[in-house]
Amino acid sequence: MKDSVALRTRTPDTDVRKKGGAFLTEIRKHGLLYLLTLPGILLVFVFSYLPMGGIVIAFQNFNAIKGITGSEFVGFKNFEFFIQSNEVLHVIFNTLFLNALFILFGTCASVAIAVMFSELGGKWFKRIVQSLVTLPNFLSWTVIAMFVTALLSSDTGMLNKWLISLGFEPISFFNEPAIWPIILVLIKIWQGAGFGAIVYLATITGINPDIYESASIDGASRWKKIRYITLPLLKPTVILMMLLAMGGIFYGDFGMIYAIVGRNVLLYPTTDVIDTYVFRALMELNDMGMAAAVGVFQSLVGFILVITVNQLARKFSPDSALF
């Protein structure tokens, strides 16, 4: 009885104060939760949003003495060299292609490793091997490049020496652009798969063991359990990781490619990405405005891509959508 009276007397007021009311109601309901988010929001504001004004450099003829506020505005001129260049479509393709391969195969490898580990029992074997497979992640690309050269060099490489000893012709790896996407993917997997598996491993440990128990009782084999329980439950995490990676899909892995391929022009057709190309184009000019322009381009297209895929994710797996 009391409630209906309260409801009746409240109605006209609620209509008038609808907008402000919804906000306040929300705050009243989850106030403490919003309070929790406050420090994070603040930090992001100070360190990420405040400096964002610097994006304007991409549209300026930037002069360090005149600063951001004093440099001349030149509209889209800084983008010219990139858009009109000979190679723009080619390097964009390489960037996307290589990154897509990295994301795809990298995820498969990491998930496979995580699943494999979760199936094991031996505590010591598990701990040791788990740590060992993450080791390559700690090596810098310069060091890795040294190994790659030692392995694949035409004159002195280990692989070629072995081929010769078996009676085959040596392969000039560093002169053949076609095989390099594969080589780069293999290197990337070796370097990152073990470490990347950690996330998936953590997710798997969160799965309720009861589900596995009941599946065993029903007579499911190990493989069936993996296929019908583990993998589907990993889906949200996989989708999230891929979404996160997708934003950067227009950013080539400069560190890796520059260290390994360096200035070997013969390999450029399949390994030159946006970042390495721009690095060479601006090497002598040293122009900050032009470099910033390419960055804006890369961010923008990546952003559009993510928004699109995110909408899809929302439909199929709303929990893993980014926003």
Partner: peptide, 17 residues
């Protein structure tokens, strides 16, 4: 809030700023 945080992953003000 999700969007607010994600946006900063892609767009940066650059080194000078």
């Amino acid at each position: 809030i999700n969007f607010y945080v994600y946006f900063t992953m892609l767009f940066h003000g650059g080194l000078v700023a």
